[in-house]
């Protein structure tokens, strides 16, 4: 409850807050019946993990071994040995129907995949690591200048002897922070 800009001072700050506050404003365009689902805030990692888990489970059920199908799909139609009037086959076979449906979906997906290559997802459009030799240039961890040397003890790269003098005075935590800036620090798990 403190003013942090020039826009208000102690005397008119509360008035400004009252004016800016959105909580008290009526929002008729929101449906009163809307209840946000619980735990809907997920980070990218969670979302991706859940999506891939779901995909894996769908694949597992679609790619079934036949144990869930009491009858092979071709028995009835091809041979004609059994009449449609046969009481057993006239019973709706839910497992078979489900399998047919999932097969259909799978086939459709496969077709789609074949036509345009692998589907594009959030994860697979990420740029790959660099393979170009020029990306192996080294820069001084302290000044950012080109670094021909590396201190074997701290693993810091440095520009010249003066910078080396400085890096010898750094303690371990600072050294690690310098390394962390280029992602070369030791991560303890």
């Amino acid at each position: 409850m403190a003013p942090i800009t020039q826009a208000s001072d102690e005397t008119n700050h509360q008035a400004l807050l009252d004016k800016l506050d959105l909580y008290a404003i009526r929002k008729p365009f929101r449906k009163p019946t809307w209840k946000p689902p619980q735990r809907r805030n997920k980070n990218v990692k969670q979302i991706i993990a859940e999506a891939s888990r779901k995909e894996a489970s769908v694949m597992a059920t679609q790619n079934n071994s036949g144990s869930s199908t009491p009858l092979p799909p071709a028995t009835g139609a091809d041979t004609g040995a059994t009449t449609p009037a046969n009481g057993v086959n006239r019973q709706p076979n839910i497992a078979q129907a489900a399998q047919n449906l999932s097969q259909l979906v799978l086939e459709k997906n496969l077709r789609a995949a074949n036509s345009t290559g692998p589907t594009v997802t959030y994860t697979n459009i990420e740029a790959a690591p660099s393979l170009h030799p020029a990306s192996q240039r080294h820069y001084c961890d302290i000044t950012g200048l080109p670094a021909p040397y590396k201190d074997p003890k701290t693993r810091l790269r440095y520009h010249n002897v003066e910078v080396y003098g400085v890096l010898r005075t750094l303690n371990q935590a600072t050294t690690e922070n310098h390394l962390a800036a280029r992602g070369a620090h030791t991560v303890l798990k």
Binding site: E126, A127, A128, P129, S130, L131, H132, S135, Q136, R137, Y139, G144, A180, A181, R182, G183, A184
Partner: peptide, 22 residues
């Protein structure tokens, strides 16, 4: 040094290719 990272992501420890390479 800071804006150069888009061209050389390894400066900031980002293990991806720079935009030129992409």
């Amino acid at each position: 040094r800071v804006p150069e990272v888009v061209f050389q992501p390894s400066i900031a420890g980002l293990d991806q290719a720079g935009i030129i390479e992409i």
